[in-house]
Structure formats: C-alpha cells, structure tokens
Design a protein around this nucleic acid. Sequence first.
DNA 1: GATGAATGAGAGTTCATTCAT
DNA 2: TATGAATGAACTCTCATTCAT
Lengths: 213, 213, 213, 213
Amino acid sequence: MTNRKNNAPKDAVRDKRMAIIDAALTVIHDKGIMNATVDDIAHSAGVAKGTVYLYFKTKEDILVEMVVEKSGETLAAVREAASGVSGTWEKLRAAMRIHFAKIIEHMPNVLIDEGMLHLTAAQQKILLSAKFSHVKFYEEIIAEHCTKTGREPPFSPLASALALTSGLIGYVFQRHHFKDAAVDPEEYLRTYEAIVRAALIGGEIEGEKTKKK
Amino acid sequence: MTNRKNNAPKDAVRDKRMAIIDAALTVIHDKGIMNATVDDIAHSAGVAKGTVYLYFKTKEDILVEMVVEKSGETLAAVREAASGVSGTWEKLRAAMRIHFAKIIEHMPNVLIDEGMLHLTAAQQKILLSAKFSHVKFYEEIIAEHCTKTGREPPFSPLASALALTSGLIGYVFQRHHFKDAAVDPEEYLRTYEAIVRAALIGGEIEGEKTKKK
Amino acid sequence: MTNRKNNAPKDAVRDKRMAIIDAALTVIHDKGIMNATVDDIAHSAGVAKGTVYLYFKTKEDILVEMVVEKSGETLAAVREAASGVSGTWEKLRAAMRIHFAKIIEHMPNVLIDEGMLHLTAAQQKILLSAKFSHVKFYEEIIAEHCTKTGREPPFSPLASALALTSGLIGYVFQRHHFKDAAVDPEEYLRTYEAIVRAALIGGEIEGEKTKKK
Amino acid sequence: MTNRKNNAPKDAVRDKRMAIIDAALTVIHDKGIMNATVDDIAHSAGVAKGTVYLYFKTKEDILVEMVVEKSGETLAAVREAASGVSGTWEKLRAAMRIHFAKIIEHMPNVLIDEGMLHLTAAQQKILLSAKFSHVKFYEEIIAEHCTKTGREPPFSPLASALALTSGLIGYVFQRHHFKDAAVDPEEYLRTYEAIVRAALIGGEIEGEKTKKK
DNA sequence: GATGAATGAGAGTTCATTCAT
DNA sequence: TATGAATGAACTCTCATTCAT
C-alpha cells in the first residue's frame, strides 16, 4: 500500500530503462551496430535524445546493460525450462531449445563484441560474466551427469559446455552472415541436438527411432 | 628472365596490398573494428594515409578484401591438408585442425560482419561467398561419405557442415569474449573432434576406447 | 497572440538559417568560393561547425539556398521598385537601379556557378530557375512595351532582356576582377541606362538631348 | 640553321606548355573549375602528373598562364579583325564578332576568377592586366571615334568600353548558367550589335531602317 | 627530362554528449 | 524530469606537390 508510492517511480524508471534497452536491440537488429546512433535508439524508444542520458551514462552503457539484461532474461528462461524436466538429456534438450530460440531472437545481444566498444575494465568484467553464465549452466549439468553416472568423462565438462554453446552461437553468427543460404533453424536444432546427445550423453542417435523397432 | 621486369611492379603492388591487409588485421585485433581508423592501418602498414587510398577505394574495401584474402588463404590451407590424407574422418580431422588454427589466428577476419559496414550489394555477395565456401567444403566431404557408405545420414550434409563450422567459429567468438576464462584451444579442439566424430562418423570415441581396455 | 508561441521556434530556425546564409555570403566575399570552408562559415555565423549541419544538409545546400534566398530577395525588391512607377522606361530604370545595387552587394551570389559545385539535377534546376527569373522579369516588361506601342521590335524581348542583364552582370563580374581599375558603379549605371534606353526604347539619349538644345 | 639547334628544344618546351594549357581549358570546360585536378589536366595533355610541374610551378600557375595565353590570343585575333576594316562601327563590329566567338570557345578562361584561387599579388596583377587589355582595346577605338567626330561623348569611352565587354562577357556567363534556356548566340550577337551601334555610334538601328521604308 | 607512387595537410561530415530551458 | 539545439572531436577521403628512379 504505502510502498506503492515508493515503488511506482522506481517501476517507471525500470520501465523506461527497459524501453530504451529494447529500442537499442531493435535498432541494432535493423541497422547494425555501427549504424545505430543514440538518436535512433531514443526515437525508437519514443523519448528525446537527452532523456537517454538520464538513464544511461554513455552509449556503451546502454549496450552493456542490454547484454546483461537480455542474458539474464535468457538464462532465467533456460533454467526455468530445465527445472521442469528430469534426466540429464531432457534437461539439456529443454535448455538448448529455449536457449536457441532466445539467442536467435536477441541476436544483436549475442554478437555484441567488446572490440566494437570502448569499455572500461569494470564494464568488460560485467559483460564477460553475463555471457559466461550460460556456459557455466551447461557445465554444471554435464558435471552432475558425470558424477551421477560415475562415468569418467572423455572431456572436461567445461570444454563440453563450451562446445555446446559454441554450436548454438556459431549458428546464430553464421545465420546472420549467410541469411537465406543458412539451413532452417529447426533443422539445425534437431541436427545439433542429435550431435550433442551422441557425443556428450552417448547412446543411439535418434535413439527413439531405433528403440521402437 | 625478361618477364621479371613486367612482374616486378605487379608484385610490388600485391605486396603493398597485402601489407595493408595484414596491418588492418593487426589493428583490428588490437583495437577492435569500430576503433580501427584508416590512419591506424596506414601507420601500422608503414605508409601514409593517402597511400592506402591508392590501393583500396574505401575503408570498407580494405575490410572486404581482407576477408576475401584471408578466407581464401584459409580454405587453400584446409584443402591442402585434407588432400594429404584419405578416409572421411582423417580428412575432416586434418581440415578442422588447420581451419581452427587459422581462424584463431585471423579472428578479426571471422568476426567481420556486414552489419558493421556500409556495404554495396556486390560487396555483400563477395563477403557471403567467401565465408560460405568453408561450409561448402565440409558439406562435400560429408555428402561423399554418405554416398560411399551408403548410409542414410541422420541429418543433411549441409546442416552437419554448418554445425561443424559453428562449433569452430563459436569457440573463436567465445574465446574472444571470455579471454582467459575460456578453455585452452587444444583441449577444445580435442573435445570438438571427438564430438564431431561421434556424431557424424560414428564409431568409438577415443576416450572411451581406452577405458574399455 | 497565441500563435506567437508557435511561430517563435520557426522564426528562430529561419533566423539562424539566414545568419548562416549571410555568413556564407560574407566569407565568400572575403575569401572566394573555393577557399570558403564550412568552418569559416560557421565561425562567421557565430556557431559551431556541427550546427551548420542542423540547418543544411551539405555545403552545396548552403550555397544553393543562398542563391535562391538572395535572388528572391533581389527580385522582390526589383518588382517592388518597378511597381511604384509607370511607363516602360521608368519601370526598367527603377528595376535596373535597384537590381544593380543588389547584385553588387550580393556579388558572390551572382557568380556562384554550378561548375564549382557537385550539384544534383534537382539543385541545378533550382539554381537555374532562381537566376533566370530576373531575365524573365525584364522580358515581360519589354514584351508588354512592344504590344502597347504596336511597334515591331527589332529583336526579341528575350534577347533584349538577356542583353540587359548581361550588361549588369558583366559589369559586376568585371568589377570583381578589375577592382580599382573599373569605372565607378554610378558612372557605369548611368552609361548603361542610356544605352538601354537608346537601344530598347528609342528616343533621345539624355546627354545628347541637352546638347541639341 | 645553327640556331635551329637552339630553338628546337625551346619550341618543344613551348609546345608542351601549350598542350598543358589547352588540356586545362578542356578539362575545366568538361568538369568545372573545382573538379579539375592536376591529374586530369596531365592525363588530358598526355603527360604524367609530375611532368606538369616541370612546366608550371603550381596549379594556380597553369590557370593564370592559361588566362594570359588565351587572352592574348583572343586580343590578337580581335586586333587583326579590326585592322582589316575602316570606320568606327565597322571596326567595333568586326572586333565584337571575333571576340564573342573566342570567349564562347574559351569560356572557362573568361570565367576564371581570382576568388577561386590562391594568387600572389604578382599573379593577380598579371591576371588583371590580361583581362583588362580587351576593355582598353575598345576604349581606344571609341575614344578615337569621339576625337574624329569631334562629338562630345555622352559617357566616357572607358565606361562605354566596359559596357560593351560586359554585354559580351555577361552573355557567356549567363549562357553557361542557363544552358538551353539562353537565346542562341547568333541572335544575341545581332541584338547586341544593334544595341551597341544605337547607343555608342548613333544612327539607324537595322530593324527600324527597314520599317521606315 | 619524364614518371607516378607516396605524402599529409586539409576538407566535409557525423554523432556522442552537454546543458539551458 | 524531459527536451533537443548546440557542440567539437574524430573520422573518412581528396588532391596539390614532391622526389627517387
């Protein structure tokens, strides 16, 4: 009740921040990073250029926070999906599905590269941490799997997790370049799921087909 | 003998072009694409700013030609390596090894993105073609393998090839972001080789082979 | 009253545009067209270089609009002067007097030449139209005179009008070159008036009229 | 005989200078003054860029000498034409005809403006002198006419001469701007001849002569 | 003499950032 | 808080001039 008074402005602030971040994502999606100006972002967010600087210190700041925000959102969705099922493979599969969908949707977010920006050390750390969190998520699942099965893994969980995310990110990256020439996301995802299962989990590829026989 | 006179100037031109391209690669590596100025590239190449414009029409031109040049160089090395061995897996493995080394070395080249540049339609086509050539190379090998073994592939050669290159590029991309946090390239490569073999070729994964003994 | 609020910003924009145009005129007057930089114009207008680009798309744009603006201003003054008197010769004389004064004042405006600029077809059309409007004004007066007097003109009104403006512009042009060596504007104007009257209107030339008495 | 050895190289030098000057005239005619580069001129002259600098100290030098050369050539032709006939009007008419043809042909030469160049005081003097020589030529004829006829002129010979050349130059200038919209040179010339005769010489205007019959 | 590759000062233009309103 | 006009540093590109060959 009483705290609504306090929260309301905070929420308004949050909303406007998010509006600007979303605008940045849209503009970058449409025009590319180098061509996205602060003016573009402000217009797309429906505010004046000066207003952007009330919510973000610099242009770099917008982008860093965009990555943090969208990465967090993606990771939350991924965790949520994985927590809904049991079994290593089921968890990985559920996570990959939603992860893949999100990074295709948030492509600019994924491709943002500190080499494109003038970042402070602190900002670089934030960026790295946000991006690495996804890898760590998969690493945990894979490590847990090894522990449970007592099976000596052929390669480290971190390397495995990195390979997994590389396959996802690499696709987004190449799709961005190849456009129509790239294979359909759904086909790619099915392919990649099978690869990951065969390599990391073992067992039959498209195992269910064989099983039914 | 006599044609040395004719070739000399052409070679000099080629050499300077390559020097500028290499300088661009270095500068981008150090400062990032958005911060690499023509002046930087010129200085790094040991020439004056104006000289760069004797060899390239625009800054965009430098970058496009850099991609074409280095992509071509990489593909040639990859083909060379693959042609030296026989057997599908041996070919893939040889290709991946050298491919991986080259894209780590030429990282900026890989990450160049038309969204960062103002490219003409023609330049975009050139860029796409150069980058896609690597995918096609793997696609051919995988397709041939399917034909030879008469085995119905679980997923299309193109999707498989794209997955393969995604794993390589995705690693380079993430390594660029994660820096020290990323796993060692050699470890990643061994991991990824095993994954690819298990998924695309089938058969024993090296690590497990040892275990069963 | 209430619309002052609405007009104020528009007026401010108009004022600043005019300030920049006037600055351009001044700078070109002092340094010549080729040596007039955008920076010079901005400084002369008391604004920063970037500000100029808020009001004009390109440097060419400034110059084209300068010509249009000053040409329009001149033509308006010329029409005004001519409308205040009756009789062909009185109209021509009044027009020439004010026209001559204006083009001496706005000399750079007159000398602007599309060969000095990279103009689009649209800009060229605008420029031509602005400059030709003066010729057309005289053509109308002369044509009307011929109609009224029923006198078969010895040469076409357009050719006559062009000759008239040539004499004015040619003087400005030469004065610009010859500087002190050129005859005084007032003397020239009296001479030229007499010539025009003798040739186009006929009748006594002032000087001789007196003599014959 | 023996001096041919000495003259030959001098002639060669003269020839190449003239080739470069003519090339400059052509290039400016085609591209406009601001777009005419030394490289363009060199190519058009069939020599290398460096060679131009063996014959002219600076780009400005080329243009100044172009004006001097072509002005001199024109004046010589004008004098030659005038010397072939007798009578003031006949002289003026012959001079104007050839003068008009030459300045249309050498339009860039006429329109060259010190405001477009960075000229030294010495160069400016040379330019002025070259251009003013034509005015002086007409001034002399008109002054002589006044003396001969003993007639008190209604305006000074210099002002008259300046008006005459203004009419010619002004036409070239406007024709350059108006292109197709301008009247035909031949029509203009006839018009202008009549004007000049009526004003400066007196007597019947051709057109009216017929009418009175 | 002749060349043309190399130079670098200087131009036009953009855009992240500020600040008076 | 919100605005958007103003700023000027920084960038890309041009071209008159030089000089080793």
